[in-house]
Structures are given as structure tokens and as C-alpha cells.
């Protein structure tokens, strides 16, 4: 089948929208990996959480995901209490901070169950969605990865897989098996020449760009951003500066869940998402991150964008083989990387 310009433009637009999301996920995966050596397999679940929570709020249903947040908060409080009791020093967690962290999900739940969430303005719904999901990042790090922070990479990978599987199970339990989509941010659409561009598409790409710029500014111009970079570059050096690996781990997981949840909110109007959609989406983010050699942010973003575009065009040319084509992309990059890397990381 011959491809003509209008079709190519439509496919290109589709590829860029998906690629923008994959890029955000690739960046999140890269960040978590460089700081903690954890391969963020659960990244996609936060995308699903974001989309499904928005859908639940818009349907006026109580956002039951908040109970996962509460359960994690309780578990974290117990873990912190144990640490407080067994280490006599001035602890890193004060008792009052512990109480605030414990009360937060319950206060949030009270709000969610009593407010008419379906009629709230969309930005407020999005804020609530983030308020539920983003704190889970540091909690998950604290509970499942901090205790094994210096374990070999394989153990970290297995833990990540276990967390992912559990989150999928929770997702099914909380959201049910059906897919959901949300209302678009606005109904407007624009004509650029012969191509119809929906405003949601502009939102996705625009937000992705804005987020990437914001991340870049954060890492290059703020002290906390530099501290995170430092923790990724040299953990010992960072520790000596008082940049604790725990802080770095929690911060990177927080950014990962933020990016994941935002991605979910952005694509939910375009794509129906269900409890098990997350994994495949994050896998494509992984391909992007691997193209970036698991080191370079610009390459990872570019790689993810390429994945989106290749996916769109492969779906046109050979839809039966689309998945094969997309995932086989990793192979040349893995080969190239392993041949040109002269400074090998100690663990990998």
C-alpha cells in the first residue's frame, strides 16, 4: 500500500503523540536507574493509575486507589517506628513528620469521598489524582528498595518485577477489568493544511515538552537537581556531601511517579486504558531508555520518540509485525553499546 502525504502526516502525528509519552517514561526510567540502579518496571502502572483515577473521579466514583496510599503510609509508618526505636540517634524521621505522613491519605480520602468529584473542574481533578499517586513513589522506594539498596542488580530487578505484579493485581482489584477513558481537556481541534490536529494532541506534546524543559532546568540550575545528578554520578561522593542515598532514591521515585501519573492524565482522553495497559506502555519507554544507553537523557527522549514514530508507521505497513519491529529495535543498540563501551560500570 502506497503512503501519501496526508496519511504520512496523520501517522506522523500519531507517532509523535505516543512518542512524547514514551519519552516522558524513558526519562523517568533513566532517572531512577542512574540514581538507584533499579530498573523501573512498575513505571507503566503509574500511567494506568493516573488514567484510571481521573476516569473514576470524572465518573463521580470515589477514588478507591487512595486506600493503597493509606496502606503504604501505614506500612511506612511502622517501618519508620521500628527504625526510630532501634537506632538511638537523632533519627532522620521525626515523630511529627511521621504523624503527618500517616494522616495525609486519610484526610485525602475524607475529601474524595465527600466532594462531588465529577463536577469539579478538570485541573482540580488532576490535582487530586496527583495527590493520590505521587506520594506512592517515595513510599514504594522506602518500603521495597531502600532496605536492599546495595543488593546486586539482579535482586533489584526481581524486586521491581514483584512490585509491578503486585501493583497490577491492586489495579484490577481497585479499578476492575474494564477499560476507561476520560473527557478531553477541550473539544477544540485545528486544521493545519490537510491535517486535523486535536487539541488533546497539542496538550500531550506541549506538556511533554514543558515537562522535559522543566526537568532540564531542575537538574542544571537548582541545587536539589544537581544533588540528584550527583547521587547518580557518584554515590559515595554524594553521601559525603550529606546527600543521602535515601533522599536521592525517594526523590527519583517521586519524579518517576509524577511523570507516570501525568502521562496517564494526558493520554487518558485519547486512549482507553485498563488495569493491565501499563506494562506494554512502559516497555516502549524502556526501549527508548536503552537506545539512550541507559545514560543519556537526550538520546533516551529521542529514542522514545523514534519508537513512537516507527510504531505508527509499522502499524500501517505491517500491522501483524508491529510489535516485533518495535522491540527488535533494541538489538542493534545493545550491540553497539556493548561494543563501544570501554568504561564498564562495576555492576553491569
Amino acid at each position: 500500500m502506497d503512503i501519501d502525504l496526508p496519511i504520512a502526516l496523520i501517522l506522523g502525528q500519531d507517532g509523535i503523540i505516543n512518542g512524547a509519552i514514551y519519552a516522558l517514561l524513558a526519562l523517568a526510567i533513566l532517572l531512577v536507574f542512574t540514581v538507584t540502579r533499579v530498573l523501573m518496571i512498575p513505571q507503566g502502572e503509574f500511567v494506568a493509575f493516573g488514567a484510571l483515577t481521573m476516569a473514576a473521579l470524572q465518573a463521580g466514583q470515589p477514588a478507591r486507589l487512595v486506600w493503597l496510599l493509606a496502606a503504604l503510609a501505614v506500612a511506612e509508618a511502622i517501618a519508620d517506628l521500628i527504625v526510630l526505636r532501634t537506632r538511638r540517634q537523632g533519627a532522620q524521621v521525626t515523630f511529627s513528620a511521621l504523624l503527618v505522613k500517616l494522616a495525609y491519605p486519610f484526610v485525602l480520602a475524607a475529601l474524595l469521598y465527600n466532594l462531588p468529584t465529577a463536577t469539579l473542574p478538570m485541573p482540580v481533578q488532576a490535582m487530586f489524582t496527583l495527590a493520590i499517586i505521587v506520594p506512592m513513589g517515595p513510599q514504594i522506594y522506602r518500603l521495597f528498595f531502600q532496605p536492599i539498596a546495595s543488593a546486586p542488580s539482579l535482586i533489584l530487578l526481581i524486586a521491581a518485577i514483584a512490585v509491578d505484579v503486585s501493583l497490577v493485581g491492586v489495579s484490577l482489584f481497585v479499578f476492575g477489568p474494564e477499560s476507561a477513558s476520560t473527557a478531553p481537556f477541550s473539544e477544540a481541534s485545528f486544521e493545519f493544511g490537510s491535517v486535523n490536529v486535536s487539541s488533546q494532541a497539542l496538550w500531550v506534546v506541549g506538556s511533554a515538552l514543558a515537562l522535559i524543559v522543566a526537568l532540564w532546568l531542575f537538574f542544571s540550575h537548582t541545587l536539589h537537581g544537581k544533588a540528584l545528578r550527583a547521587a547518580a554520578v557518584n554515590r559515595t561522593g554524594a553521601t559525603l556531601m550529606g546527600i543521602s542515598p535515601v533522599f536521592a532514591g525517594k526523590a527519583s521515585f517521586l519524579l518517576a511517579t509524577l511523570l507516570g501519573a501525568l502521562s496517564g492524565i494526558l493520554i487518558a482522553p485519547i486512549t482507553p486504558i485498563s488495569f493491565d495497559s501499563g506494562f506494554v506502555i512502559s516497555l516502549k519507554g524502556f526501549v527508548g531508555a536503552i537506545i539512550g544507553g541507559l545514560i543519556s537523557y537526550p538520546l533516551a527522549a529521542a529514542g522514545a520518540l523514534a519508537v513512537g514514530l516507527i510504531e505508527a508507521f509499522a502499524a500501517f505497513w505491517a500491522s501483524s509485525y508491529k510489535e516485533v519491529i518495535v522491540f527488535t529495535l533494541i538489538i542493534p543498540f545493545l550491540l553497539w553499546r556493548s561494543l563501544t563501551r570501554h568504561t564498564l560500570e562495576e555492576e553491569e
Partner: peptide, 27 residues
């Protein structure tokens, strides 16, 4: 300091320049 902790020591006025320097080479 019953259980010395790096962050706290740095805050209190102690600092260590290690043998391997541990700079952030890419920065």
C-alpha cells in the same frame, strides 16, 4: 555521637576528603 551519621556530621561541622576524591566527574 552514639551512631555517627554522615549528614549529621557534615551539618555539625565535620567533613572528609576521601583518598579517592570521589568528585562528580561529569559535572
Amino acid at each position: 555521637e552514639p551512631v555517627p551519621e554522615v549528614g549529621r556530621m557534615v551539618r555539625r561541622g565535620m567533613n572528609l576528603v576521601p583518598e579517592k576524591r570521589e568528585l562528580f566527574a561529569e559535572m
